[in-house]
Amino acid sequence: MFCEKALELIQELERAKDLLSPYDTDSVRTILEEMNMLYEENINVINISIDEIGSEMYAFRLRHAALERNKRCLLAYLWHRQQHVKQMRWEFGSILPPDIKNNLSDSEIEWFSQYNRNLAVYMKSIGSDGLNLALDMKPPKSLYVEVRCLQDHGKLEMDDGEILYLKKNNQYLMARAQCEPLIRQGILEQILR
């Protein structure tokens, strides 16, 4: 049956929707080989004499449809992964955890750093001295928030040059702008009253 591998690829993507599984080089290659084979067969049909082409027509159309279908599946695979990578820029920040980075293909890593660069250039261009779009995702009510540290993170250099050691279970009163990225990354937690 045509397009079986492509379907498996899509089903796998659908199953693991909220995490990025390793880039499946083998399947992608197999699908491309299948597409090449379909293409060759169709070229052969075109090259035979006009009289015979009538009886070959249905098989020809079927192979062409399979070719299109394979293309659609592959593109959908790449597109969904790319959307996921883009989303990760906003949730994890500009540096990805190493175990996630391992799952990306080379071109996806390149795309990610290019996206990072574009975003940085854009954020710098807003206003007179730039605007960090990743800050204040929700409207702030105060400039300082109380936070508790969830893991030993080590040194953190504050905007005024002071160095803070983040230790597990310690609580701090920090500038909102400073700690928001850390909260998003799950290193700090906001204490609610």
């Binding site: 909220d18 995490l19 989303q87 990760m88 906003w90 949730e91 994890f92 955890p97 175990d99 996630i100 995702m137 929700k138 409207p139 702030p140 009510k141 105060s142 928030v145 909102r176 700690c179 928001e180 909260i183 998003r184 990354q185 799950g186 937690e189 906001q190 609610l192």
Partner: peptide
């Protein structure tokens, strides 16, 4: 309950940590 200013960990990060 709280108003809207509570900053939370990003959803993807939470899932990633759970898996770890």
């Amino acid at each position: 309950c709280h108003g809207a200013s509570h900053i939370t960990t990003a959803e993807m990060v939470v899932n990633h940590n759970k898996r770890k």
